[in-house]
Amino acid sequence: MRALFPLAILALPLLAQHGRYLSDSNNPAIGDPVAIAAGTKLFMGSCAGCHGPDGGGGARGPNLVRRSLWHPLSDDAIFQVVRKGVPGTDMPPTKLADDQTWNLVAFIHSLTGPASSNPVPGDPAVGKAVFWGAKAGCGNCHAIRGQGGSMGPDLSNVGGSRPLAVIREGIVEPAKDLYYLGNEAATVVFKNGQTLRGVAKNRSNYSIQLVDTTGVLHLLQMNDVKSLTLSASTPMPTDFATRLSKAELRDLLAYLAAQDTRAADAKGSPQ
């Protein structure tokens, strides 16, 4: 049996962290492109050696994006960590001025906050064509604002709910660990000989809630089921890192980063 359980737990911190970024700190550096740029510079100089250039982890320091999934920190707490370090570990204290420290916090916030709230490189309009095009075929499985398939999670709010690095991982390393109950590709054979294929949104030993390949929900009782076949790995294709060019991936990410149910009304998102 695959490790469904720990992965289900991962979904919780993801949810928990969303609330954090908006209500947290009123420091003007947060979300300010100039402060983030200054913070990036500082990070490259003092922190990247341990945490990697994009905070993605290195030999002596953890991946800060992943860490925020299980150890979410408020902006103020990040400030304190940067200032005081983490005693007893390699994470050193710093002697930076307050505004410099806030610039660093703004940078870390931009790494770990929802992708839509940060500047993202790439052309969303080109990314849109990639998403809906035949080469990637994302739209066959994923829906955005009512268009697209239902075999994968809805991505209408992916930019409003996930850090950019997490979206990228979801695409290029889908098998890593974002595979949890609710996305299993399933084939049901009933005792009466009928067959049904789709995604098991939920299941137990007694019932199964399945969305078929046409997007229709079926509520089934296991007493009616003869056998159930489930995909042993994520249904999400695992070859996008090679199938797509660097530019295609960057633009695709820019498009997904803009998918935010709340930004749409203010800015108008590319759909």
């Binding site: 829906a143 604002r145 009512g146 239902s150 209408s156 969305v211 997007g215 929900l217 009304d265």
Partner: peptide, 18 residues
């Protein structure tokens, strides 16, 4: 004050409008 409409089968967002 956002009116959010979702696909009844899947929960996918159709629109969310302030």
């Amino acid at each position: 004050n956002y009116l959010t409409a979702l696909n009844r089968h899947t929960g996918a967002v159709i629109f969310s409008k302030k």
